[in-house]
Design a protein around this nucleic acid. Structure first.
Lengths: 334, 334
DNA sequence: GTGAAAGCGCTAACAA
DNA sequence: TTGTTAGCGCTTTCAC
């Protein structure tokens, strides 16, 4: 592989002229440009990005920390982020952290080590924590699940309002015993959703029953297990609210296995509106989120941060939608 | 952020000694080492990876080109790859190419530009094609959907045998009219699966009926549409073979919408065994693949290539499994 | 065991 | 408009 000197020699110009021709052609005479371009062609020259970035102290790489790439919702977020990055001339370094802080730190360190220009974190946790001094001011954007009162920009959903709207939908159908399968204890997002669920219950004058709140981890199996536990209760709920669609789909299987029907015997709802939600039997009532927009906004804000451009709104809240399908129905007369 | 000179000054040694302490501590006196380490600590020093890699001409980055990250099967492949990379001290740069050669080329160029050490391609296409001279010898491994007779290492499944086994399973249940929803024309993988399907039919003395072969693109919607078309045939099939689980799940919805039952009226099978397959109603009979192993093997082979270690087997074929669940049953008497 | 010095490939200030 | 030159931060001989 040839280098810039080789090209300069072939074109009969200085290395500076080659560099200029590549970076700002308008500052070079057309005929010089042509000579250089011909030489580049002839030498099969590709600039060594390593050297370019080393010198210009800008990599064009953005790290995005994803708790679980296999999660259909995050896949959509990534897709939006990738498109925005591409449009702005940046590349996305995707990292499946499996929610582990150690892996997050390792990848966030790429910024500290000048291997990436900034980080997008999709989990409520600061990946620069416990980094050497100065790290707190590195370009970081937090999206999806965000840290409350974070010093860095955030893009979030009003999870509390969304959960409340969903619970109100169920209450409106006559349900009064509504179970909820929530996420892991460590997730602030799940706290918000439970809070919204409780808001709706209280406003309807329904007592919050702790036995109707069950922990899960956003997987199919967690929904399956959670539904199993919930339906064995003596006074079982007539509606079940799962904090994501995966768990709802898991719950759906268990409900059917136990010989109950959705929505006749029990209403079931999810959260996220993943593609499979519309293909369940019955199709799932759920909260839809503009997943791609999360990724897109996060990238745009991060780039603004990196390029030190002003940011209009540091804490963006995206709208949710209540998508009613066939998995909810009025409570059956007992 | 401090640099190596700052640390050298603090420790009262030369930059060379600092570098050595970090790279090969055993070549430095313990007391010198301690001085240096203290200075590193004090300065909050982090080596500039950009400079390290520029100098040592090795990045520790592996590019993995994924046609669609949202695809549940690829998500598992990535997971396996990530684990193997981590274990070997490499990082994975994930790229969602949306099957577009332009994006693939752009990311593959990272290798050419010394930004990554090698590439894993999960699609049957050479991302280095039309690159400047010398590109053909760059470290590349092709997994999942592979190029026939490729000059680079490959990891694949015997798709033909798998499709044949699946078709034989259906024939064994008494089905004789078996429809197939295949992938896009450009995919060699789909050709193999159709060939396997035809092998099984021929061996059973069943004529191949072109009207029972339908094109799709591996999405839920494609399965939905494909099943719709297939079931409107005058002499409709009693079994439907979808080339992936997503399409099977799409087909399942349409079959039910048309008032038919699975498996009583029509047997339905998929391919891949994604997590959702076991959670369908009925659970899906499908071909299981060791998805994580694809990723793991690909990374291991790529690293061997990069580090110029010998590779035992250049074309690995992984085993498949026939997972029979509730979506297949003996053909009903008409 | 340690230091001095050269230079990886490129960019950017400055000079011409 | 183009060339000269001085590094970017680090690794790696080669002396000592």
């Amino acid at each position: 592989m040839s280098n810039i000197r080789e090209v300069a020699r072939l074109a009969g110009v200085s290395v500076a002229t080659v560099s200029r021709t590549l970076k700002s052609p308008e500052r070079v005479l057309p005929e010089t440009r042509d000579k250089v371009n011909a030489a580049v062609e002839q030498a099969g020259y590709r600039p060594n990005l390593m050297a370019v970035q080393f010198r210009s102290r800008r990599t064009g790489n953005l790290v995005i920390l994803v708790p679980a790439i296999a999660n259909t919702f995050f896949a959509r977020v990534i897709s939006g982020a990738q498109q925005a990055a591409q449009a702005a001339g940046y590349r996305l370094l995707l990292c499946d952290t499996q929610g582990r802080a150690q892996i997050e730190r390792e990848f966030a360190a790429l910024v500290y080590a000048h291997q990436a220009d900034g980080v997008i974190q999709l989990r409520a946790s600061d990946p620069f924590e416990s980094m050497p001094t100065g790290a707190e001011s590195l370009p970081l954007v937090n999206a999806c699940e965000v840290v409350k009162g974070a010093p860095y920009p955030t893009i979030s959903l009003d999870n509390r309002a969304a959960a409340q709207a969903m619970t109100e939908h169920l209450i409106g159908l006559g349900h009064r015993r509504i179970g909820i399968i929530k996420g892991p204890r460590s997730s602030p997002l799940t706290l918000d959703r439970v809070a919204g669920y409780q808001d709706a219950l209280r406003q309807a004058g329904i007592a919050v029953d702790p036995s109707l709140i069950c922990h899960g981890d956003f997987t199919l199996k967690a929904g399956d297990d959670g539904a199993g536990a919930m339906l064995e209760l003596a006074d079982r709920p007539s509606a079940l609210f799962c904090e994501n669609d995966e768990m709802a789909i898991g719950a759906l299987r268990r409900i059917k296995q136990m010989g109950l029907r959705v929505p006749e015997d029990i209403s079931l709802v999810g959260f996220d509106d993943i593609p499979f939600a519309a293909y369940c039997d019955p199709p799932l009532t759920t909260i839809s989120q503009p997943a791609e927009t999360f990724g897109q906004k996060a990238v745009e804000m991060l780039i603004a941060l990196i390029e030190k451009k002003p940011i209009a709104e540091r804490h963006v809240v995206l709208p949710f939608g209540l998508t009613v399908r066939g998995s909810t129905a009025p409570r059956a007369r007992q």
